[in-house]
């Protein structure tokens, strides 16, 4: 991940958003993180009103998606991103409370690049985000376009 890689995060629970942001920062992720509190707003950022990709070409992005969100849920967004040729290479990570095998299966089938469950115990929660941060740091991200 480059220094100027932007992390786009869709998360409807502001409490969770706060905890994730704090822990990513503490784990050394200093990249820009754009937060959206529902899927609709994220899509409005990615696409323009004509449905064309609105992300600057040559830039790198990473997507962090919660699944259960109002209006448009994470799985819908995953579907849309992975079926869009320009966006398909963009890494998409599911970061969610749900851990049903069915859901995990669905997301991988749709082409997610990782599925991470938010643990309830805070120590584990911190450890998970630390590991994830370490991973992000070494991740190679393709540019848009």
């Amino acid at each position: 991940m480059l220094e100027d890689t932007i992390i786009l995060m869709a998360e409807d629970d502001s409490g969770h958003t706060g905890l994730i942001l704090r822990n990513l920062r503490r784990a050394g992720i200093l990249n820009e993180i754009k937060h959206f509190n529902d899927g609709q707003k994220l899509l409005e950022f990615i696409f323009n009103t004509n449905g064309e990709v609105n992300l600057p070409k040559g830039k790198t992005f990473i997507l962090l998606l919660d699944i259960r969100m109002p209006v448009i849920d994470g799985i819908e967004i995953l579907k849309i991103i992975k079926s869009c040729p320009d966006l398909q290479p963009m890494p998409v990570f599911m970061l969610t409370t749900t851990d049903t095998p069915h859901e995990i299966n669905t997301c991988h089938r749709l082409g997610c690049n990782g599925y991470i469950t938010k643990p309830i115990g805070y120590d584990k929660f911190i450890a998970t985000l630390e590991n994830f941060a370490s991973f992000l740091k070494v991740l190679q991200v393709p540019a848009i376009g």
């Binding site: 629970d13 409490g15 969770h16 706060g18 905890l19 699944i67 259960r68 969610t96 409370t97 749900t98 851990d99 049903t100 938010k118 643990p119 309830i120 115990g121 805070y122 120590d123 929660f125």
Partner: peptide, 16 residues
């Protein structure tokens, strides 16, 4: 597994 976990994570997380 989801809706009840969401507040639990917050409670645990923010207490810490």
């Amino acid at each position: 597994s989801h809706d009840l976990r969401t507040p639990l994570i917050n409670i645990q997380g923010y207490s810490r």
